[in-house]
Design a protein around this nucleic acid. Structure first.
Length: 389
DNA sequence: ACACCTTTGAAGAAT
DNA sequence: ATTCTTCAAAGGTGT
């Protein structure tokens, strides 16, 4: 019974207040949604090619960075406050102005996440989000969202398409749900460019097809998701986080979860469904933007995509990030309500042992984070095929 | 078939 | 209280 405690307030997400910071370089250059790629990729390229700050990719960059980050996080906690102040200022509903996030799909979401529900359906990105099924990654929350706790009809997940009305109560719920503490975003956390993919394959396509690869990520939440028996929570509430604990749990869990098991995967009665961790802000962001990045570049490797997304994440404005932090918080809260007894620890050790082992094997004697360890030990990975450049 | 890579953040474990 | 570790998504890649 982890949390649920704290009656009231926002407890849950205490850490959410740790909204990220942008890296000093990209401080305020708000990158236009559509224009990001070019610039971002250029950045990536340059950093990869030149790398004043680009540490020897293979060497060790990350560990250090992570340490610093951790330190900064602790340190910037107060700085962060300032920002959240801003945010809270907008709690009245102006926080998610379409203008500011016109590019964000979830602006199209029904109010659960919109204070005033005002969105611009005409947003150019709409198509990306507005999947046929009307599910948005963010809406992954919806399936088990307040509907369950709310007397209001389940208009969110399954009925996104018909959601025409804005539901005021929702927004109110939201604001009351998590009143952003007066936290603050640090202006910078010293995020540094890290070894990145050359992205040479990225074609700098200015405009990506309106029909994105169907935002694969979004399609991961088809309506069926709501009905999937496997994702049904004991309470009867379907939840994307619930995954049948089939032999392999690493990949496609959601998909598998969502799909009516197209394949007669051996009817072995699914054991206890695995309840996944709720996604954090960045994960939500990635889910949402991945398809877009993939569409913009020819890249497909998640590792590369993630690097880009990580960069973009830092380039986001505080408000933009705050949005995701809130969504993440909401997700956690819902998750917590649905699975009060669930603990992140439940899933520990389900991924076979990996880096951890390496770490020990690799001796290294010292106490380093797994990150440091496996990063150093592992081959430079696909990263930096500098020669390829 | 499955671990790795890569990212950030949250949570639990360890110190 | 601080630091470290694991997992969350995802899809190409390597073993």
């Amino acid at each position: 019974m982890p949390q649920l405690n704290s009656g009231g307030g926002d407890d849950l997400g205490a850490n959410d207040e740790m909204i990220s910071f942008k890296d000093e370089g990209e401080q305020d250059e708000k990158i236009p949604e559509s224009g990001f790629t070019e610039r971002d990729l250029a950045d990536l390229k340059s950093s990869a090619a030149v790398g004043p700050g680009s540490p020897a990719p293979a060497s060790h960059p990350v560990p250090v960075i992570r340490r610093e980050q951790a330190a900064e996080q602790r340190g910037y906690a107060d700085k962060h406050r300032e920002h959240l102040d801003d945010v809270s200022k907008h709690q009245d509903g102006s926080m998610y102005k379409a203008s500011a996030y016109s590019g964000y799909p979830f602006l199209m979401l029904p109010d659960p996440y919109l204070a005033n529900g005002s969105v611009s359906p005409s947003s150019n990105k709409v198509s990306v989000v507005q999947q046929s099924h009307g599910m948005h990654p963010i809406t992954s929350l919806l399936p088990y969202s307040n509907d369950h706790f709310n007397p209001s009809p389940p208009h969110l997940a399954t009925d996104m398409s018909q959601k025409s009305g804005v539901h005021r109560h929702q927004s109110q719920d939201l604001s009351s749900f998590y009143s952003l503490p007066t936290g603050q975003l640090a202006p910078s956390m010293g995020w540094q460019p890290q070894p990145v993919y050359p992205l040479s394959s990225c074609g700098f396509r200015q405009s990506y097809p309106s029909s994105l690869p169907s935002s694969s990520s979004y399609s991961r939440f088809p309506p069926s998701l709501m009905l999937g028996p496997s994702s049904m929570h004991p309470t009867g509430i379907p939840h994307p986080a619930i995954v049948p604990s089939s032999g392999k749990q690493e990949h496609d869990q959601y998909d598998r979860n969502i799909k009516p098991h197209p394949e007669p995967k051996r009817e072995k009665e699914p054991k206890k469904p695995v309840i996944k961790k709720p996604l954090n802000a960045f994960m939500l962001y990635m889910k949402e933007m991945r398809a877009k990045v993939i569409a913009e570049c020819t890249l497909k490797e998640s590792a590369a995509i993630n690097q880009i997304l990580g960069r973009r994440w830092h380039a986001l404005t505080r408000e933009e990030q705050a949005k995701y932090y809130e969504l993440a918080r909401k997700e956690r809260q819902l998750h917590m309500q649905l699975y009060p007894s669930w603990s992140a620890r439940d899933n520990y050790g389900k991924k076979k042992r990996r880096k951890r082992e390496k770490q020990q094997d690799s001796t290294t004697g010292g106490k380093r984070s797994a990150f440091a360890t496996f990063r150093e030990d592992s081959a430079p990975a696909p990263i930096l095929p500098m020669e390829v450049l």
